[in-house]
Design a protein around this nucleic acid. Sequence first.
DNA 1: ACTGGCGCCTGTTTGC
DNA 2: TGCAAACAGGCGCCAG
Length: 264
Amino acid sequence: MPELPDNVVYRRRIADGALNRKIAQTNVVDPRILAGVEPHRFDEVLSGQTLTETHRHGKHVFAKYGDETGWLAFHFGMTGKVEIVENGDPSEYAYIQLHFEDGGHLAFVCPRKFARVRLIDTPEAFLEEKELGPDARRVDVEAFLEQLEGRRGSIKGRLLDQQVVAGLGNIYADEALYQEGIHPATTVPELSEANLRSLYDAIQVVLDAAIDVESDPTALDPERFMLPHRYGDERCPDTGVPLETEQVSGRTAYFSPARQSPPA
DNA sequence: ACTGGCGCCTGTTTGC
DNA sequence: TGCAAACAGGCGCCAG
């Protein structure tokens, strides 16, 4: 699920529910979810620590522990999520757990195991190492244009490239392209600067709307947005024509053939 | 340097 | 109805 809006929700969840609670111990149910650190080391580092600060960039959420020690980095893959549990046992698939002294715990849940938890020095250094692009919601339009300068591939492929801009995933990229009437397979050079400026605006509108509904795409206004129809009648909310799909950059792209003409 | 394609995992949906 | 195949809101790695 997790694209930028989901990460907004998860960061808030951690900020509201996990800060300033002393970690008694950790439980790593599946060590494959930990990247670059062994479970015993992970536990050694975090036990006795307290999360003090959070940050989000694109599809990563960061949580600082201790005074000057380091940060946790969460990436949610396809099916990851974070839950704060006050009472009761961890839910199924809670492969990494931070248990607080007061009895509650943070559960990092990821049935498909594509998600990863890391220990990093700082978010800045991590973003640089991964060469991630600017956050899709904080980037300004000029920097957005610059990131697309000289690109040749499909606009959808570029929007999904986290090194171009960080945060967009399969469904919100489709939605932004729908809003702007751009077929997902259109190449970047086929788009005018005006097209790209409008697309930038559409991305902001789509992300804001998604955040407003806690990143539940089916809860978006069905009159304005395509996404609710992707999971429903599969018809264009504007024209009523059936939505079509096509593989673009290895992902299924939904689009309205009535509004988004394929490239020549 | 860029780009598209494949494989990683497993639960759920689809289709014969 | 039952089972196999296809699919899924992502990304690292590879070859062209």
